[in-house]
Amino acid sequence: MLQVLLDAIVLGCSYALMAVGLNMVYGLLRIIHVAHAALYTLGAYVGLYCLLNLSQSLWISLFVGALFSAIVGVLMYRIIYSPALTAPRYVPLIAGAGVFIASQELFRLLAGPYPYSFDAHFQFLSIMTPNLRVTETQMLMITFMVVAFLCLFILINKTNLGLMWRACTQDMELAASSGININLIIAINFMIGSALAGSAGILMALYRNSVFPTMGAMVSYKAFVVIVLGGFGSIPGAAIAGIILAIAESFLGMVPIFNLPREAIAFLVMILVLMFKPKGLFGR
């Protein structure tokens, strides 16, 4: 039982990493960032490229992949979302979907349709007892998530940048009128969110040992569920909800009568929660 719980938490970490980036964008701009999943895949591919061609080190490929995703994320905002901000809400949604379709095709054309193996060697902690196993990759994921969230928490709550960011999420115009460079804040927001998505992509590629063009699709749907459960715009909410969702899925999936695929279970849980708490579990 403990083992199942632990495996679920590791899975939850990946959901949380994806959902946080998505939620940061939502909190600031109120757009559903469908193309976020493209950055996840991008991170994995860039990381893989690094690993195969530049260096054998996982850490370097993790860094380069996250950096690349961050840059592309900001570009994506400048090119796709920033002209669409004044338009109705469905416009960025569709534009994001278009970019997501195009990105999947781009990865397929550049790297071929086959899955690649993500064969990185690295040293890390692991626990191996007869009753409990945490592999190196699992440990790495948990550590990464904890560190990332601590950094993010400090950044938001203890720094000036965080203060400005919080001001922008409250009221963009008011923040702008009090001298905050909102373009910079949005860009940084996209950078952090995209870097998290990119590193999530690399970590999952490592965990599953596969990189393929459509790997982003499933995770992106999951991330939607997570941000609803966690409350739109709430970062700790997304982190907690990601882990709760993974646990719920894993345990409900073990119940024989609950014979539905994971996605359906996740969305069923989401709709039920929305019926009773229309603002999400941790929403304001």
Binding site: V4, D7, M254, R262, E263
Partner: peptide, 16 residues
């Protein structure tokens, strides 16, 4: 047990 196409996480089934 049945699992959907595209599933990646099997640990909970495999433990069972």
């Amino acid at each position: 047990k049945k699992y959907p196409l595209g599933e990646t996480e099997f640990r909970s089934y495999l433990n069972a």
